[in-house]
Design a protein around this nucleic acid. Structure first.
Lengths: 240, 240
DNA sequence: GTCCAAGCGGACGATCGCGTCCACTTAAGA
DNA sequence: TCTTAAGTGGACGCGATCGTCCGCTTGGAC
């Protein structure tokens, strides 16, 4: 494998394509450490300045050079995906767990609440979730298809049990998640608004609206909104 | 008024401050025309590339120079506000009209649906709505206070009539609008998702869920999402 | 200890958007 | 028609971000 054309710059690519399998274990310790540092820094910076924050800011926060960052994550998308891979996996796992819950409605409810809680707790994750959707939720198309099939199964079961309204459509999950993403992205606060929205939506999904008490209302008024202050504006056009 | 200090550069400012009232009618015809052109172009460009689109793009689309644009709208915020002032006024008017509807629940429902329809139809407006919230919905703090008071009145009435659930809080309107903004911003499509969300929420706001049929579900699946395609990515990081 | 390539950092040129400045154009009153 | 200042356009300087390039450092095999 070493006899292949060595046009200097091509070298790296060739190695990457041909011998990554054998080199897997030969990744330098400092490289692995730096990669991890970058991911931690990326989550912090993205949470603070939004996922459009300058790559250099992430690098500085991580204590590495920009080149190091670009080597590990050639594009911003790759970095975003890397930074929130864990959260994405948790989402996927939540679905599996939901299917395992005996009462299908409880499973359904738990799934929605878990995913929304995840979005509300990790700042920057909602934006990443929305931006990377087609590729995300899992790495490959096949896996995505499985997620879809599993969720449909969950919906069918919950409807069969009589708890989930018959006209709920699996695509409504996307609607809920995107709306929720928008809400938490606009309101980086304690999550009261998020909880409130989720409670409302879950109630309207039930066949029998048992009318459980809602979580407490938010302190929002039309005039005392934390939006468009310097901090949240930074979400859109970040500075160093 | 002409005898005031004329330090060359100060001139414009002085005139603006002292004689704008008399000059109101003396605005040149071409200036007014250009202003209008800029507004039209701004709406088009914002709809296409998001409200972060380069100012130069708006100017080019309007067929004017950048200086002209900056003269009429010194900041991006001013331009955004100008571009969507009409929509903002429509929102405010919708509240007044909702109060005039005999059945308070119908008024409430109509208000939510009107505002959401507006957000869904004018691309770029949702982002402007969220970004400019504290200043928007009306020009002055006093006016904002009136909006808040009127909406609270509407809510009280609807609750007294028994149709709106007692634990609905006026701040929930903010929650609904922000969530809806997020949804339509993420999904620049035909509005099916928006209608679906609004219907769900309105149902969960009712005391007696008459369970009217929902609007048709969206065609969304977990894998065939129009998000993160080139067109919607342009919403976030616009190019010329 | 020696070696060497994987890995590293930071400088650098390119690109882009911003907002100002200034010389020119033109609307509109006399 | 003449005058004039309001209005215009585009070039330009500035600063920020991008992603690459290249010489140096260091992990780890021997």
């Amino acid at each position: 494998m070493d006899a292949i054309v060595r046009l200097d710059r091509k070298r790296e690519t060739v190695v990457a394509e041909s011998s990554r399998i054998t080199a897997r274990n030969r990744v330098r310790a400092d490289a692995r450490r730096n990669r991890e540092r970058v991911l931690v820094a990326a989550r912090a910076v993205f949470a603070e300045h939004g996922i459009d924050a300058p790559m250099a800011t992430v690098a500085r926060r991580a204590g590495v050079g920009v080149a190091t960052l670009y080597r590990h994550f050639p594009t911003r998308d790759a970095l975003v995906r890397g930074a929130f891979a864990q959260q994405m996996e948790t989402c996927a796992r939540a679905l599996t767990e939901a299917l395992a819950v005996p009462d299908p409605w409880q499973g359904f409810q738990q799934l929605v609440e878990t995913v929304c809680a995840l979005q509300r707790e990790e700042r920057g994750f909602p934006a990443a979730f929305v931006a990377a959707f087609p590729e995300s939720m899992s790495e490959e198309a096949q896996s995505r298809q499985r997620v879809e099939r599993d969720f449909t199964t969950l919906v069918r079961r919950a409807q069969a049990s009589g708890a989930l309204r018959a006209d709920f459509h699996p695509s409504d999950l996307v609607v809920v998640l995107l709306a929720h993403c928008g809400l938490v992205a606009a309101l980086p606060d304690d999550g009261a608004a998020s909880r409130r929205l989720v409670a409302y939506l879950l109630q309207s999904f039930r066949t029998d609206p048992a009318n459980k008490p809602l979580p407490p209302p938010t302190a929002l008024t039309l005039r005392s909104l934390p939006i468009a202050t310097d901090s949240s504006r930074g979400q859109r056009s970040p500075r160093t």
